[in-house]
């Protein structure tokens, strides 16, 4: 935790910050790898929801280059296993996620991201 599946679903939500607010950039991260059960049906179901370039970018930022630039048309087992690893086995335990637009810092502590907004950010 934070896994990249989650990172791929979170956008900056500061009031008025509605463009270029995704994906959040990682800074000063501590990464832990944890094996998890491979569930190809879950992955296939989730792929349509993914922002592919954001996922590839985040993975590379964290040193994993196993994913291709483009989402392949054929979802074979090798690809799904690589995707499984990137989405669910890379955990950002500590660090900061920064909005590329408004530069809001979302701290990650003990694997839990703090996405609360300050008073002036909710308008």
């Amino acid at each position: 935790m934070v896994r990249l599946i989650t990172h791929n679903l979170l956008a900056c939500h500061v009031k008025g910050c509605t463009s270029n607010n995704f994906p959040l950039e990682f800074k000063d991260v501590q990464v832990v790898l944890r094996e998890s059960e491979f569930n190809p049906d879950f992955l296939r179901g989730f792929i349509p929801k993914l922002e592919w370039p954001a996922l590839v970018g985040a993975a590379r930022e964290l040193g994993d280059t196993s994913l291709p630039d483009q989402l392949p048309e054929m979802l074979d087992d090798d690809f799904l296993k690589a995707l499984h690893h990137v989405l669910l086995e890379i955990h950002v335990e500590e660090g900061i996620m920064i909005c590329p637009n408004c530069k809001h810092n979302y701290p990650v502590s003990n694997g839990i991201p703090n996405m609360l907004l300050a008073e002036h950010e909710i308008g």
Binding site: M1, V2, R3, I5, T6, N8, L9, L10, A11, C12, H13, F22, R34, S36, E37, K49, E51, L88, G111, I112, P113, N114, M115, L116, L117, I122
Partner: peptide, 19 residues
């Protein structure tokens, strides 16, 4: 534990879900 995808702190009325 493996199936708890993530835990996040936020107010659901100010949520960061992208879509």
């Amino acid at each position: 534990a493996d199936r708890i995808v993530d835990l996040c702190t936020f107010d659901v009325t100010r949520n960061p879900w992208r879509c």
